[in-house]
Each structure stands twice: as C-alpha cells, then as structure tokens.
Nucleic acid binder design. Structure first.
Lengths: 256, 256
DNA sequence: CAATCGGAGTGTTGTTATTACACTAAGTGT
DNA sequence: ACACTTAGTGTAATAACAACACTCCGATTG
C-alpha cells in the first residue's frame, strides 16, 4: 500500500471543557451555535468552546485565546485531556458547516481536548452571555454539537479521577471557602455523598487547608469558618509524601 | 489581530514509546536514524518510532502501522499519552530534515504521543534489529533525536502512575510468570524495591492472579510456581470495587 | 424574649490495610 | 552429605478508614 501523507487537508482544533462551580452545582461553559446549526447535521444548539489552530500558535495559546473570548481572562487552570482523531468523527454535513464557518476546506479535523477550571463569579456569567456562551449545569446538559457529549463525559470522568490525586478543587473555589462548600463541590464532581465528619477530619488533617479569621455572616444558623488552600504547604507535603512512600507497595496488578 | 487558520502547512505525527520487559530490565524500542542525522541538528542516533499521519488514517491506525513495521505485530496494548504542539519544538535544521525525509513541506509538526506495551520475546528483538530498531534498557538511554528524551521521561512517569491503578503489568509479561518476575517488573517501573513477603501477600489476595500447575525447571534453588492474570476475574472485581467505594471519601484536596 | 429552625462543629470505636521483620523448604551443583 | 540459592510462609504493631449522634450558634418567628 502506498502511504500518502495528506498533511494538506487536515486541520487541528482545540475544544475546551470549562468547568465552574457556583457553590451548589458543577457548571460547564457552552457556546450557542445558531449560525452553525442546520437540518440534517448532528450540530445541536450548544457546543463546547473551541477553535481551529491559528497561524503560528501552539495549542495552549489557542486555548488561552478561546478562554479570553468567552470568559474574559487568561490566567486559568488548563490541562490537555485527549485527542479525537477518527476521520469519521466530523464528516458530511457537519464538515461542510465547519468549513463554511471557518472559511477553510479541510477533509478532516483532529481535535485536542482541554479541561479548564475557573473560579466562577457573576461577572463571568454575564460576560459569557454577552459573548454567546452560557454556564450550564452539567446535569442538565442536553444534546451538544458533533461529538461534544462524548467529550464532556470523558472530561467529567477525568476530573473525578484527578480530584483524588491533585488539588484541583481549589481551582474551582474562591480563595476563601467553607468546608461545606468544598464538600458540596467534591460531591458534585464525584457524583455521590460523603460523611461530613469524616470529610472534615480528612480535610483538616491534610495540613494545607488552613483556617482564616473570617466566618460566614447573615446566615440563620451557626456561621461556618472560612478556610484557604495553602499551595506552598501542599507542595512541601507532596514532596515529603513521595519520600515516605519510597518503600511502599503499589497495587501492582491494578488497584486491588 | 487577524487570525489565520494555517491548516495547510501543519502536519500531524505520532510517536510511540514502546516498552518491553526482558525479565530483568525495562526496555524501550528505539529506531536508529542515520539517514536522519546531520551536523547542526539536534537529531541524535536514536529516536522513538513514529510517523506522519497518512491519508485517511486515524491516529490509532498510524500507531498500528508503525508497530507492525518495527515489531511485526498488530495486536498490542496502546494508549494515547500527550500532545506536543510547541511550534518551536521542531524547527530549523530539524524541520528541514523531517521535510526531506517525508518529502513534504510543512512549517510545524504537532505530535501525539502513544505508549505501547508488548510482551517482548527473542523473535521480536531480532525482528527489530532487521528493521533498523533496537530494544534498549531504559536506564541506559542516551541522547535521542528532537525532544524524544522529554517524551520518554513523561512516558516513564506515566506508566509508573498507571501501574498503581490498572493491570498494565500483564501487558509486559508472558502469560505465565512468577511472582518474583512480576515484582522485578514493578520495581523496574517504579524505580524502588518492595518487601517480597508483603508484595506476594498483596498479589495473591487480589483474587485475579491465579496459580498454574507449572513450576520453574532447572533452577538451582526451590522452583517458583507460575501464575496467570485472569482478566475476567479482574474486571468483575473492578466492578465490585466501584460499587463498594460509592461512599468512600476521596482525598478531596489532593492525595493526602 | 422565648422558642424554633437549620446547619456547623465535634469524638469514639470497630474494622481493615499497611508495614516491618526471620526462618524453613526445595531444588542444583560439588 | 553439604553448601548454595531463591521460594515461600506468619505475626504483631500501627495507621487509615467507616460508621455513627449530639451540642453549639445565630437568625427568625410569634
């Protein structure tokens, strides 16, 4: 078989799954795509924010560009997730629409997906609305354009996994937060509930979630204390943890 | 700023980090690249096996194609790792060499990296040699072409991480193996040693690593029993584990 | 201003997983 | 028979986890 390196009709794009937390539910940033939709295509009413890769930009800068467009800020947590490369992933009507939208003529699109985590606030919500986007409860997301539902589900599993290993929760929370808020967030990400006493115990024994002087005000119950995440302490702990575990037995055959 | 979607001069490639285990050390498959190397370029004597994406093929099939070329078989464990997209990652002399080698004219290459795990045997070693490749101890890998050293290091960390969560060890071992061999492999991947009694206890209590009737022969010491990995049992266990952990508290703030 | 409401915050105990550690068993070779 | 080499076994101390019920504090209501 002759191999043809068809580098001239393939485009690379990024799609971002941007998560936020409003204190109660996990939200995802979706872009309305009316210009985009059409009969006979699988394009729904919403899609994940994304873009083709522009001239001389790397993937990360494309993500930053898209983020800036929809949430108005550059400095946010972002991590590469996966690459979707099936040539049949976007084809037929969908591909025509994409070609038209971007004014290009490509026969396939390879998409690199990213996960972003932002500290959601009300300005960001209205900023998104002004720019054709919307923060939507992950639980009430309906049909999305292209294969974006698959991507979203993968992203949800991904952060649930990550939550257990890295301090990603604090990327979604304001600087000061109560233990209850942290727990609600963890429950939203994991999809199940925790025992509040054990949760609190674990959090406080971590050593890097430190109390502030502040309490909630105007709540009709005992006010909760605010805490902060101390990144420096966390990193010091992380190093120590690594050293201590040098002789530890991993679940060699798989998480037994 | 005007955004130009320069889809017409970018190529997508895959690079594979293929690991094998010879019973004593972890090996990685490297390709000699004499045709490739030149004065003034960062191209070393070896590189990871890889390729540009060919006509109408998706990334996975490109990986399979490359694997077939170097190890002569299709059916192997492979997982996507990461995407390297910095435009400056491959440029200048290196880019010219790559363009010449593939007979293309691209200004940037975006590379998706894969990890493959194979059950190494002597036929594969000679097959590789005949096809310009070589299985090399991961500990004695020197300077590689382009940014392939970075990719290799990432891959090593990746499998160390994975080993603790998925049964990847058995992708590297023959069907039948001794507990000692499994331990040696885990030690090679993790980079430190385990207590042999605790290791054995853990492995045997997993429930899905089952003894065979066979023992080692012609060893000048008590012969070790061979074991097998039972995938079906593992998957059943995995489901049960998930159910049981429904109320478990994750290390919410990060692996405390 | 007493009573009610709602969520914050607190400790203990039984159970399970982890670690550390030393000897005997079964073969080969001399 | 003896020496050598690696397989294979058990226990006890410690640490992490899971299950569980009540008091505290402030706001609100009547």
């Amino acid at each position: 078989m002759q191999i043809i390196y068809q580098y001239d009709k393939q485009a690379i794009s990024i799609d971002c799954v941007v998560f936020g937390f409003d204190g109660a539910a996990l939200k995802v940033l979706l872009v309305r795509c009316k210009r985009f939709s059409s009969e006979g295509s699988s394009i729904g009413n919403y899609k994940l924010p994304g873009s083709l890769i522009a001239n001389n930009e790397n993937l990360d800068s494309a993500v930053i560009r898209v983020m800036e467009e929809h949430i108005g800020m550059r400095s946010i947590y972002m991590r590469q997730m996966d690459v979707f490369s099936d040539p049949k992933r976007i084809d037929g009507e969908d591909l025509k629409l994409v070609n038209k939208h971007y004014n290009v003529d490509v026969s396939r699109i390879i998409t690199v997906t990213y996960i972003s985590l932002v500290k959601l606030n009300s300005q960001m919500i209205s900023y998104a609305l002004k720019n054709g986007a919307e923060w939507i409860d992950v639980d009430s997301v309906k049909r999305l354009a292209l294969d974006h539902n698959d991507i979203l589900i993968k992203a949800l599993n991904h952060i649930a996994q990550q939550l257990q290993q890295e301090p990603i929760a604090f990327e979604l929370l304001p600087k000061r937060f109560t233990i209850k808020t942290l727990r609600t967030l963890c429950e939203a990400i994991m999809g199940f509930e925790f025992d509040s006493r054990n949760f609190r115990k674990k959090i406080l024994s971590s050593g890097y979630i430190i109390p502030t002087e502040e309490k909630e005000v105007n709540v009709s119950h005992k006010p909760a204390l605010f805490y902060m995440f101390d990144k420096k302490l966390y990193e010091r702990e992380a190093k120590r943890r690594f050293k201590l575990s040098l002789r530890r037995l991993p679940c060699a055959g798989g998480g037994a």
